[in-house]
Write a protein that binds this DNA or RNA. Structure first.
Lengths: 255, 255
DNA sequence: CGTCAAGTTGAACAGTATCAACTGATGTGG
DNA sequence: CCACATCAGTTGATACTGTTCAACTTGACG
């Protein structure tokens, strides 16, 4: 009951189903099947025939693409409320990526026929789908531009800020993370009181590399440097942004 | 009359309007406004508010994105029958790219309200839009993967093959493409009589560079080498593929 | 023909990748 | 509960791909 109500809440806020009446949401939920994934479990694999479209309700999923020669590219992380696996479903083909649970997850899923029915009864959904895809296209275009014209350092800075913004809304409010003046080395710069946001991001160097088209070595070196300059503070599969402004400056146009 | 009939033909084959009855096509055409562009004329500029969605009926258009620091990235060429400018229209925002006519063009255009009406009366259109966007997403993902993991030479080879395939359907004419055993090492290679397919591509080195994330210098060097090996033959804003197989070998996995 | 845009090519340089060796954390089973 | 295996991360040395800059050639077009 309460659980069911929580799902409605989530659905109503999910990009695919915003703007639907209670009635529509009920239909959507009726057609859905529920699923759970353990950490590191695979939701679907690249090149499998696409059968289901997923909505993540809890946890985190990463979408990766494998190159013919075995390298991986990280397309994106999926956060609760987001949909994935949809592209393939609408083109009736295979999943272009592999979806793996980063943490324990809960999801809702619909097959192609169900989506078809839902879109017929609730045309708003089709519009939402279009909007979602258009959004994806824009993001991907930006990424292509970045990869084509920008250096690794800047790409990493952007990736961090994007990840912080994406995961941020969920977990804010930090006390401390204290000001540890790690360096004191040379560049006396240090986050001023109100400025430090301390957004914590949970990704490995490897992930960041696959996300930005760099090697984990370059990522590691870059983070080390930033750490010595007081911009971030990092640990195992964890990066804390101490000075978002400075990062933004790197991400934008200043050298 | 005849002109009108030609338009129907084109509409019926265009990705956005396939599967529509004659009746639907008529509606689509009624709502359309016609437009012409001279060579190098701008159809719309990046960051302008998006008002129209275009279908190219004749000519060629290129979509480019400008980076903050003035570099350009070429997103794609638009061929007759293809739609562009749609992404922005559906997200109610600004065009993310600039559209420039490469040759003299003719186009049809619809505004947001018109598309809305059309999609209501002909729901098939909404599905086509979704499919088109999904296709775009897949292509962009592939491009991100390429840019992240592959070297310039391979990216250029792929770009050439894609361009040939895209523009090709218009101008074909093959004999064989024969069996050429790539190997034999020595540079003695040369296209045999019947073998050359001669797919001609009209792009500058600059364009190819912006398309692949390389400088025009690197593109020029690469093409020069290929030319000396008999894979292509090139001139001013023109590249002829002589040995598609060898190019494909470079594009795929062989070094 | 002269002019301008597109293309070519060399030389030096810079940014990253690659490889290898090492350090610490994490967690596991005897 | 400790020893060990494993995994994420760090850092140096080195190599190489591709960029940058500059000078030059070629071809098209009025």
């Amino acid at each position: 009951m309460d659980e069911r109500e929580r799902l409605f809440q989530l659905l109503a806020e999910a990009e695919f189903f915003t703007g639907l009446e209670r009635r529509g949401l009920e239909r959507v939920l009726e057609e859905a099947r529920q699923k759970r994934l353990e950490r590191q479990e695979i939701c679907f694999r690249q090149d499998e025939p696409a059968t289901l479209l997923y909505l993540l309700t809890e946890g985190r999923v990463k979408l990766t693409q494998l190159t013919p020669d075995g390298r991986q590219v990280l397309m994106r992380f999926v956060e609760p409320g987001e949909v994935f696996g949809g592209i393939a479903l609408f083109t009736q083909e295979e999943y272009p990526v592999t979806a793996e649970a980063v943490e324990r997850c809960r999801l809702l899923a619909w097959d192609g026929a169900a989506m078809q029915r839902l879109m017929e009864k609730e045309p708003k959904i089709a519009l939402n789908v279009i909007q979602h895809l258009a959004e994806l296209v824009k993001n991907l275009q930006d990424r292509v531009r970045e990869l084509s014209t920008e250096r690794v350092e800047r790409r990493i800075a952007r990736a961090l800020l994007r990840l912080a913004a994406q995961a941020g809304p969920a977990a804010e409010g930090e006390a401390s993370a204290g000001r540890l003046p790690t360096g004191s080395g040379g560049t006396g710069r240090r986050p001023e009181s109100g400025e430090a946001m301390g957004a914590v991001i949970h990704v490995s160097r490897q992930d960041l590399g696959e996300l930005t088209g760099a090697t984990l070595y370059t990522v590691s070196r870059t983070l080390s440097r930033w750490e010595s300059e007081g911009l971030v503070e990092s640990g195992r599969e964890r990066i804390t942004i101490l000075d978002p402004r400075a990062l933004a400056a790197i991400a934008e146009d200043e050298t």
